[in-house]
């Protein structure tokens, strides 16, 4: 079969909404785009464990401690499925992780912001997981089969996390003035970084067009960002929290909320490694990898010894 013929068949599958599977022919750029996107998503899950993990030992009661442990554990699990999905495309997990450590591969910039109060944990659940779900629900129908299937499971857990985060904020917002202020402060710090999670504006996004044609992405960055704002405003109202944007208002003609321009300078600074916690996050991951080297070596050496004993 000629390459042109293979490509025609590939596009026909995309057109007919037939999933692309690991052994199917696919254009190299499609493969590379998926590896980049899936690994970036996996890295985000793993780095995302750090700001929340910091609060496990300080969670204010036993139930919250258990819920947070379960949530962070889910994130590690999501990282595992996603690395596995990337491996079906021929990528190597350790190589992907090294690419993150060197800065070649990115993870979601939101995790470069610090989680400094307990209210940040609820806010991360509500806004950050909420923004992630906007992206991820669309990815449940992405054209690559293993990625789409991983996303179905991940979305179920993420929406559970979002509800837990929101529920924890309800407690704060109905609590003492100190608790309410803590929640508002977290909202002030996380609102804009949450909107930045959808990536650069459509005009600036380098990967969007082709990804939409291949149905890897179903909606553009700006469309998803708008959906998120539209969905979140009423949730903030119920909590009695103010969204830190004086220009936020309902636009009857558009049928959407208008909101201020994102501070793109901050966005690009954080992407380039100059966010408040970029260095700390990578340093923590590198330390885990280096400290764990002897453990992985021991496991490999032991497995080899046992295999030799069996064959002997």
């Amino acid at each position: 079969m000629t390459q042109a013929e293979q490509e025609r068949r590939f596009l026909e599958k995309i057109e007919k909404e037939i999933k692309i599977e690991p052994n199917d022919w696919m254009p190299d750029e499609y493969r590379q785009t998926l590896i980049r996107q899936i690994s970036q998503h996996a890295h985000s899950e793993i780095v995302g464990m750090l700001p929340e993990g910091n609060w496990i030992t300080r969670a204010p009661n036993l139930r919250r401690k258990a819920v947070l442990l379960a949530k962070v554990q889910d994130e590690a699990g999501h990282g595992l499925y996603l690395y596995s999905a990337a491996e079906t495309l021929g990528a190597d997990r350790e190589q992907l992780i090294d690419d993150m450590h060197t800065g070649k591969a990115k993870y979601s910039s939101i995790f470069n912001y610090p989680a400094v109060t307990w209210a940040d944990i609820g806010t991360i659940g509500w806004l950050v997981d909420g923004a992630a779900i906007m992206n991820q629900v669309a990815l449940c129908r992405t054209s690559y089969g293993p990625y789409a299937r991983a996303m179905v499971k991940i979305c179920k857990e993420e929406s559970f996390h979002q509800r837990q985060g929101y529920e924890s904020l309800i407690k704060l917002c109905n609590g003492t003035p100190q608790q309410k202020a803590m929640a508002q402060d977290a909202m002030n710090r996380f609102w804009w970084p949450a909107l930045m999670m959808f990536g650069p504006s459509d005009a600036e996004s380098t990967h969007s067009d082709q990804s939409i044609k291949w149905k890897i992405k179903r909606f553009t960055n700006d469309e998803l960002r708008q959906s998120f704002v539209d969905a979140t405003v009423s949730q903030a109202e119920i909590l009695g929290l103010t969204i830190p944007d004086p220009n936020l208002k309902w636009n009857e003609a558009r049928g959407h909320y208008d909101f201020s321009e994102i501070n793109w300078d901050e966005f690009w600074q954080v992407v380039k490694g100059n966010g408040p916690c970029n260095k700390e996050r990578i340093a923590a991951r590198l330390k885990a990898k280096e400290d764990g080297l002897w453990v992985r070596e021991a496991a490999n050496a032991f497995a080899k010894k046992r295999a030799m004993k069996k064959s002997a």
Binding site: M49, A70, A76, A284
Partner: peptide, 28 residues
Amino acid sequence: GEWCGHGPILEEDIALTNISLDLIGQAI
């Protein structure tokens, strides 16, 4: 719980967190 996010391999991060979660559940 202090290990969470710092385990030597991802699978072990999950295992240690899971044991922690079981113990907190028992404590409750």
